[in-house]
Design a binder for these strands. Structure first.
Lengths: 250, 250
DNA sequence: CGAGTACTTGACACGTTTCAACATCCGTGG
DNA sequence: CCACGGATGTTGAAACGTGTCAAGTACTCG
């Protein structure tokens, strides 16, 4: 393990965990002393695939990734986006077979952590088990919200909703300011996340821009009218289960 | 707590937990000695509501329940169905505020378990924490599959898929035989689960019946052609993370 | 500078929604 | 036990959101 450029409180993992759970100093140090294998990945690469039986989980250190599946007839559905600090396949700690794939959306730096090491830490510090469990439950809450987004909202509202979520989640880990964040997502990916075609996403994004709600270009997403965007997306950040909602959601 | 009519291995909770996790005899006994407050509920009653901060979780002993949310403009989305043995709001053990509601679909017998008691058991037996964590992860896997179902499948396929899931899950806890189970679900509820209107569900169900895939009447669902139903629903039970897939899925 | 990827636009097809009317089932009270 | 009333299921026609196809434009990176 190389010397980390991060202190306890600036490490992406700790930033993310602290945004949804509570950790003691001792637990933070224990987490950061986990052996991690760091790798650089290009955009659009699979990290793990549906059907795999991994012996380690993947921590995103930098960049954007997503969980997805393919239907039998080749249509892709994205179930969630992942940013620095997230452990998108943490569930494989307890579920043997992966039921979905994980891929990069941008160039990414990721760290692999052996399940063995995580299990040991969880048995040793129940507080860490509780925090990681809580993180997986918050992830599940996001899945629930996405079911509603995909099932019961129109494309206009769906897109506003996922953009709101991206802004709040990046802000909660210190990656956004002034309703602005760096993001690497294609219109095809936004379509795969909302159950729409890329063509339709294109038209709806133009509408959102025309209405003065957002700007989205050259990898920068900006909410020009946050309140209106929230309203358009029927967005209430409660489901993100953030520890400091007032600070993170504003 | 009244004397239970169940032995260790016939209690719905143990049946369900054992279908997705591994428990020692000691852990089973510890779970069944949890203090539970049993209640009978009528159909279409809310058990807990979005926004609540419960101090207990709800174990379904008999009947069908569902998790749902309402959009800002009053459309309902069901995120999952629940049967005997499920603890649909187990996440409230670690997430303070409920982000979705839980309601009965049929008359139900439910048991409430105080979080306090569950926490104590989890700290005492790490195996129980691991099993309950795993159950919540399997629930999350179902949410992921539903995102795909709602986002990328057509109504015909969506309905076949949820019916397949119901048959496999009831079978896994001993509530189905010969691809047949007792079920209490209206066409409106199937629509709310798949993101369709009740009218369209009606037409699609007729098609499924006409094609000889199912019969669904007087609270009995029967797969008349299981292989064809699975194919229509693009159904692969891997995402249910059952311990005995060969036995349960057949 | 070239090539591939991402974005944009238009026309048409299709799945699904909505509305409205009607039939049927089922539990309940008389 | 029957009659009633509300919930549930059924049907048709028209409207609407979104998908598909196809062609063209504009990035972006090596």
């Amino acid at each position: 393990m190389a010397a980390s450029p991060f202190t306890t409180d600036t490490h992406p993992l700790i930033r993310h965990l602290a945004s949804v759970a509570t950790l003691s100093e001792e637990e933070k140090h224990a987490l950061l002393s986990l052996p991690m294998q760091v790798m650089e990945l290009r955009a659009d690469q699979d990290i793990v695939r549906e059907g795999d039986r991994p012996t380690r989980s993947c921590l995103i250190l930098q960049g954007w990734a997503c969980t997805f599946k393919m239907t039998g007839d080749g249509k892709r559905q994205i179930m969630g986006f992942h940013i620095a600090g997230n452990i998108p396949d943490l569930q494989s700690l307890h579920l043997t077979v992966l039921d979905s794939s994980l891929g990069t959306m941008s160039p990414c730096r990721v760290a692999f952590i052996q399940h063995e090491a995580l299990h040991a830490l969880c048995e040793q510090h129940y507080g860490i088990a509780r925090a990681l469990w809580r993180v997986t439950l918050a992830d599940a809450a996001i899945f629930r919200e996405w079911i509603m987004n995909v099932g019961r909202r129109e494309a206009h509202s769906q897109l506003a909703h996922v953009l709101c979520e991206m802004l709040v989640r990046t802000k909660a880990v210190g990656l956004a300011r002034d309703h602005t964040c760096e993001i690497t997502v294609t219109q095809q990916e936004l379509g795969d996340a909302t159950g729409n075609s890329a063509v339709h996403v294109n038209r709806v994004l133009q509408q959102l821009r025309r209405d003065g709600l957002i700007s989205l270009e050259s990898k920068t997403l900006k909410a020009l009218d946050w309140e209106a965007l929230k309203a358009a997306g029927d967005f209430d950040p409660t489901y993100l289960h953030l520890k400091h909602p007032e600070r993170d959601a504003a």
